[in-house]
């Protein structure tokens, strides 16, 4: 679902970089305000590795094939660490495997990182609703994991559909983009389940690994 180079016009690419700079700054500020900012680094680093590898895992959804993103999972488990983690993961995917692009790094980071932060806030609703049971946390984890990817797909869809270049058959391309967005639905549900499983496992084994208030 990464947007490669040469697909989006220059103003959007530049806005993407500006936005990414701003959100990275804000995320780092939030991390720095934590009691021990370094404590989250090992977990963030391991999940960056998971994010980095996830794009290799292709799931055939006929007629196309889609890959895992795991941005909702990162947001759920990392909180504000998720944004720099996704940014670094995307950078390595772009320079090592030309997956995505260096010019669209900012746009891709916003597209996956902002929904990750949204997923974090969805999962933190557990404090507001005082959810302490494993089943309740798993359901919340499902929603945060699924919404993280779902929102990213929505941003991907609207970015592409509003920036179709001239010289293309607009209807064919719109149909192709819509098809690709719909093909992500099974992955949205899959990542939701995966997040729910992981959240309930961590809660049982080592609950302090879940992001605190």
């Amino acid at each position: 679902m990464h947007i490669p180079d040469g697909i989006l016009p220059a103003p959007i690419v530049l806005t993407g970089y500006a936005g990414t700079g701003l959100v990275t700054w804000y995320s780092l500020r939030r991390i720095n305000r934590q009691e021990n900012p370094q404590a989250g680094v090992p977990k963030a680093s391991l999940l960056t590795a998971a994010f980095f590898v996830a794009s290799w895992i292709h799931i055939p959804v006929p007629p196309t094939s889609v890959h895992l993103i795991l941005n909702g999972l990162l947001g759920t488990l990392l909180g504000y660490f998720a944004f720099p983690a996704i940014l670094i993961g995307l950078l390595f995917q772009a320079i090592l495997f030309q997956h995505g692009g260096l010019s669209t790094l900012g746009v891709n980071a916003l597209m996956m990182g902002l929904p990750a932060i949204a997923a974090h806030y969805i999962f933190q609703l557990r404090y507001r609703f005082k959810i302490t049971q494993v089943n309740g946390l798993a359901i919340l984890g499902f929603f945060s994991g699924a919404m993280g990817l779902g929102l990213a797909v929505l941003i991907f869809f609207s970015l592409l559909i509003t920036n179709l270049p001239a010289g293309l058959d607009v209807r064919t391309e719109q149909a192709a983009i819509t098809g690709l967005a719909l093909a992500h639905l099974p992955v949205v549900i899959l990542e939701g389940f995966f997040t729910a499983l992981l959240v309930s496992f961590i809660y049982r084994v080592k609950p302090e690994l879940l992001p605190q208030r």
Binding site: Q38, V41, S45, L46, T48, A49, F52, V53, F92, L96
Partner: peptide, 18 residues
């Protein structure tokens, strides 16, 4: 190999800070 090196970089960072 490149992928494994990348993963090792992340895991190594995690181990260092841990």
């Amino acid at each position: 190999l490149m992928g494994l090196m990348g993963i090792w970089g992340f895991v190594g960072t995690a181990l260092f800070f841990a």
